[in-house]
Each structure stands twice: as structure tokens, then as C-alpha cells.
Amino acid sequence: MTPEKGVSAAGYPSLVADVGGTNARFGWLAHAGAAVADVQVLPVREHGSPLSAVQAYLALQQARLASAYQAPRRLAFALATSVGGDRLELTNAHWSFSRSELQQQLGLSSLLVLNDFEALALSLPRLSAAQLRQWGGVGGLPGGQGALAVIGPGTGLGVAGVLPSRHGWMALPGEGGHMTLSPADAFESELLAHVRTEFAHVSAERLLSGIGLPVLHQAVCVVSGVAGAPVLTAEQIVERGLSGADSVCERSLASFCALLGGFAGNVALALGSRGGVYIGGGIVPRLGEFFFASQFRERFEAKGRFRVYLQDIPVALITDTLAALSGAALALEQQDGDVL
């Protein structure tokens, strides 16, 4: 595929990246309109800074492209943190850096910094049916009309939206994962009451994330009267819960799905995302059929007088873990005015 007639190649090649608390995903844009290519996933913990991770990826690109290699002119950096100001710190990882210094160190003409869920939200209009699994609602995805929302339990919990406008798709980034989590029944009220003995504020991320699942599991143990339960990692809870051999882990996953459903319904109401609610992040895809047999959809719709409103909204699980890279690519194109 070659650049479209009339589209400047001045900003290419470009680099796109999606950085969470665990992994940094990098991709290459050879020219305007190109699909994201040469994707590599690098563990954040193995690099002391974003500069180190970018340089490691570029070394791989130089080896891959040989004499055809050109240094990238721009970078769209999607980060799991709030992105205001020059100084940036990942919420759930050790990277702390200056965006202006990083741009200078890499010799870039521009460095576009986005919240990671801002990038994932921008990917939604471009997702294909092969990248999704729909659950309920009226109408098929992709291609939903109006506002779209995305929620992603990964290392943390991301929330964002995207709106169509005459200038293209406009992302609505935020920190919705830190909104206060609410219970829907007596058992959940007991869970949250226990967690509040340790944390003054129980946000959605406090329980509905990789860092939160162990907290949720310990609360389930206490409320269920299970004494002396070991502290498990999120990976262990998922593995034991899905195996059916550990009833407390299984109940923890069931509570996770139910609470996530109620939270997702709140987000849908807040954003008016009648075009669809998408579930991203790394945890839910690992749950497989357990998720689709859970109370998620029931709790998503259980909003009293607005049940019918929510029944019409489709939910879709994003099965492609690299989707945010295409959102970062769209951000670069819209920055240039290539997509209007």
C-alpha cells in the first residue's frame, strides 16, 4: 500500500506505542495510511525508562529493515497514566520521564502523548468483527452509531469514550477507573465494607484490575468465613477459579464479573454510549466462557427504570490485545488532518 495522492510523507515513518503497567507494545507506520506493522511486545520491568524500551524496539527495526531503515520522525505514545504536563509517571509501573526530554533524545519532530485508553477508544471505530465478540444489545458491532465507551481491566482499570464529529472521532479520556465502586446486594456491601477497613476509598480499580483481584479475593475469603487463606496473585486466582478446584477463587471471579457489569452499566449511562460498550484489558479475555456465563450482562442492565435503555446497548469483548496501536495511529493521522 502506498501513500494516498496528496498526502504528505513528511511525518513518516512513525512509531506508535501502547504502554501499560506490565507490557509496552510497539508498532511501525511506514507511510500515511499504512497498517500498523512489525509489532513487538516488551516487558516494562525489563527497561528502566521509555527511552530504553524505544531504543530496544528501534534496534530490532534496524536489524529487520537493514538498509531500508529510516529513523522514525514521530511517536504516538499511549500511556497508562494521566498525561497532563511535561513530567509523566506511569500509575502502576516505575517509569517517570519528561516528554520534552524524550522527544529530544529520540530526535523526533513531534511526540504525541495520549492516555492508553484514549488510544484504545480511538481504535473502536476501526475494529472488525474478527477482533470482537458481542454480547447482547440491539444491532451488530462494529459500526455502532453515536458515542462508544471502553472499559479495560488490566494491571489497572481504564475507562474512556469516543464521539463522532464532523472533524473525525473525538476521544474522551479520563480516569474513570478511580470512581467509587458501588455494591448491588448485601454480599457486595460486606465485601466493600471489609475493603474499606484497609483503604479509605474503594475505587473500581481497587477491585476490578490485576492489582485489585487479590484484594477482592481476600475480601471474599473474609466475608465467606474462610480462615487462613493464602494471599494469591491475580494469575493464581484466575487459574484456580477457572479450574473449578477452588470454590473461593471461583466465587471471587464471579464477584469480579458481577461488579464489572454494574460498573460498565454506570459508564454507559454516564457517557450515553448507546453505540456500544467495549471491554478491553488483559483479564476478561482470559476468563473465556466463564465471563459469558457470569452475571455481567444481567448486572449491566439492572438499573431500574433504565433497564430498557441498557438492554439495547451491545457489549463487545475486544479479543485483539494490540487494538490500541491502531488508535494511536489514528491520533497521528487526525493530528495531521489526514482523516477528517
Rank of each mutant, 00 (worst) to 15 (best):
S203W: 07
R45D: 01
G272L: 09
Y278M: 14
P13R: 15
V159A: 07
R307V: 01
L213G: 06
L242G: 04
A10V: 12
Q103Y: 02
F117W: 12
V113Y: 12
Q145T: 09
F256H: 10
R307K: 14
G84M: 04
G140S: 14
V159F: 14
V159C: 10
D338Y: 15
L325S: 03
A331E: 04
S100H: 15
G152E: 07
S100W: 10
G265H: 08
V113D: 10
L317M: 11
Y12Q: 06
D116A: 03
G152N: 05
T197W: 03
V195D: 00
V195F: 05
L132R: 13
A93T: 04
P50H: 09
Y278E: 12
L111C: 08
L310K: 06
R240S: 10
L102H: 12
P43V: 04
S49E: 11
R196F: 02
L322P: 00
V19K: 08
F292R: 06
A171V: 05
W28V: 02
S98D: 06
V202Q: 04
Y69G: 07
D320E: 13
D18R: 08
V220G: 09
A32D: 01
E4V: 02
A200S: 15
E333L: 09
G136H: 15
L325P: 02
Q145I: 00
N115K: 12
L332T: 02
A184E: 14
S109A: 14
G11F: 10
E239H: 13
A10Q: 15
H31Y: 13
Q104L: 04
V202P: 01
I211R: 15
L88E: 03
G241Q: 04
L141T: 06
T321P: 05
G275P: 06
W28A: 03
A37K: 14
A68I: 00
A130C: 07
L15A: 08
Y309S: 06
Q55A: 13
G272C: 10
L148W: 05
A323E: 05
Q40M: 08
S96E: 07
F300M: 03
P142T: 02
D185E: 15
G276R: 03
Y278W: 12
G177T: 08
Y12N: 08
L148D: 02
E89I: 01
G6Q: 13
P125F: 07
A270N: 13
V162R: 09
T319V: 12
M179C: 08
R133G: 02
F97I: 01
L192V: 07
G168Y: 15
A149Y: 11
L111A: 05
F199L: 14
